[in-house]
Design a protein around this nucleic acid. Structure first.
Lengths: 345, 345
DNA sequence: ATATCCTATGTTATCGATAACATGTTATCG
DNA sequence: CGATAACATGTTATCGATAACATAGGATAT
């Protein structure tokens, strides 16, 4: 509508012409570290500011064969976990001068995976971070494609495997801490509500529960455990079922806080006193858990840090690659912490 | 380490050579809609598949002056609200063939805003979506810069203003629904715990509360309202304070579910029966609210839809711009819905 | 004083694709 | 049957920047 609306992009040529130098000189001024006389530098800089010139990262990416952009593939952004992780990724990427090209996958469709990877590569991302839980065999595609992807790929929340770079919370250790805490409180009959056991994280948490109890000479069979799907609704069901099976249980370790919330709700409804009759420990430490009643003892995992570490690792790999050094595929573990609140005192 | 690791990008030239045609012909095959003989098409396609060729979106963006990428600026990704919105944005963008270039701002720093916009523009984004709440005067920069940004910019969760495209939940209407519901239940003394009143959303919700009560000839002054900062911790304080001021209150409308959670917790601690003595209504309908006890009546806002609408609008604006049509700056409102649960029956 | 290096800047090639134009072949039409 | 249109393909210019190379003057070294 407005005729001044026709804002053409200002290019390096425009600047060069206005400053009476070659584009190469402008490029030198913009990128520092090259011979330019102080006088010329000033003149060019003045013009750059006046015209409001900003170099096209796009053009630069093309010639330099790197984009200073990381691809991030998320799975279920709508859940709070991935988005907190993404926050860490975003922060660290910003700090290290990278932008994020994002793709959210709603369901794990193998066909879409190739498509997504290709679309990221077509935009020259320098590395890829995969923010997706390991479920069943959904990681197998990696082994198959690993050799074909020309940039470093890192996996979050995946079981550590030699040769595959990953960063994950130590879910096993978290569970061990939770159970140890309950044992320290004198509990002996500790049930478990697990997540969907095809998820690696659910499996690890369950394994921590089982191993710790058995090491203490206590019961921990599948009989003392029921399975939910992470949702509060499923937690309610799983708890009812567990209570039937294991009526004299004196504590329950719930694989996430959402499910623990409905456990608390049910205990209230059934008149079970928490923590006197039944201690409850969750996992994740979502913001609300401090305000459940009773407030929830839980395992806090630092998802922000998880995301940051992921970026750190990928960027290191990118740098190695750039210097033609071999890439060392590391697997990092982030230790969770125990947060003791009313539900287990 | 592995010598086959040196995976060079396959370019259109490689394909052209292998297929014995010009690059232009390959381009024609890739982009359809142009004269290519069936025979040539087949031959090229075979080579493309064999070599695993994927065109560089980067190079294409450069020549076509458009990237099929949207810039998304978020403010506080760590909160569940923005990330649910982002989910909607991601889905719709995917559906319409766009990728997302993301930047998260942790605090509202005017200097950084320019920098962020520039970095997005340097990467040729076709449009920008601003996923940030309107707080105080933080929108003023827009009016100043609007003319200088060569692509459509849309704002989420901002007060509708003529000439500035935006999409927002109708917070006022949501509050009206909440209060109307309480009135229908026979409540007459309805207090309010607001969000930080410098936030537009907090202001709107409060306004809906006030107007509806006054229209019904009931009390609604600042005396019947206290202010929190959205967090559960602040909700506890705000509730304690409100209860002192307004002891015979028979209902409270809390500006978000997190704060409502601690209100429920406090009522329990103080022996106030919900809903008999005090009805509670929240806002947002977070996943957990159905499992609070009592379960929370709340206003559900469809953040997913919000994000989708935003992308829809921006893409429409991009298309108008491409056809040199004037851009019509629309402001859309998304209607929230009332979810009745135990806390207000 | 001549060879050599450092400084300062310009010129040309290049990244990977598409746009614009050119050219030749085969149908179609009056 | 010659003109015109539709088809099929190639050639050259271009997007906006940087890499690689070239050039020339002044400082330094021997």
């Amino acid at each position: 509508m407005n005729s001044t609306d026709v804002r053409k992009r200002i290019t390096i040529k425009d600047v060069a012409q206005a400053a009476g130098v070659s584009t190469q000189t402008v490029s030198r001024v913009m990128n520092k570290f090259s011979y330019v006389s102080e006088e010329t530098r000033q003149r060019v800089e003045t013009v750059v500011n006046q015209m409001g010139y900003h170099p096209s990262t796009l053009a630069r990416s093309l010639i330099q064969q790197r984009s200073y952009t990381l691809g991030v593939v998320t799975f279920g952004l709508k859940y709070i976990g991935p988005s907190r992780t993404l926050n860490g990724v975003a922060d660290k990427a910003d700090e290290l001068g990278y932008m994020l090209l994002m793709k959210d996958l709603d369901n794990f469709n193998i066909n879409r995976i190739d498509e997504v990877i290709d679309s990221l590569l077509a935009r020259q991302v320098d590395g890829i971070i995969w923010v997706a839980p390991e479920i069943g065999e959904n990681h197998t595609w990696v082994e198959e494609r690993k050799e074909k992807i020309p940039v470093p790929v890192l996996f979050l929340a995946m079981r550590p495997r030699p040769g595959i770079p990953s960063v994950a919370t130590d879910n096993y250790q978290g569970a061990v801490m939770a159970i140890q805490h309950l044992l320290d409180c004198g509990r002996k009959k500790i049930g478990h509500i697990s997540g969907p056991i095809s998820w690696w994280e659910a499996e690890e948490r369950k394994r921590g529960w089982r191993d710790t109890l058995r090491a203490a000479g206590l019961d921990a069979s599948d009989y003392h455990c029921t399975e939910g799907n992470w949702s509060s609704a499923s937690g309610e069901q799983a708890f009812t079922q567990l209570l039937e099976r294991y009526p004299d249980m004196d504590a329950v370790f719930v694989a996430n806080d959402q499910m623990a919330l409905s456990v608390l709700r049910e205990t209230y409804r059934l008149g079970i006193r928490v923590p006197d009759q039944l201690a409850v420990v969750g996992f994740d430490n979502i913001a609300e858990s401090a305000y459940f009643h009773p407030s929830l003892t839980t395992i806090s995992q630092d998802l922000q840090l998880l995301g940051e570490q992921a970026v750190q690792s990928v960027v290191e790999m990118i740098q190695s690659m750039q210097q033609d050094q071999p890439i060392i595929a590391q697997s990092k573990f982030i230790q969770p912490t125990l947060v003791i609140r009313e539900s287990s005192l």
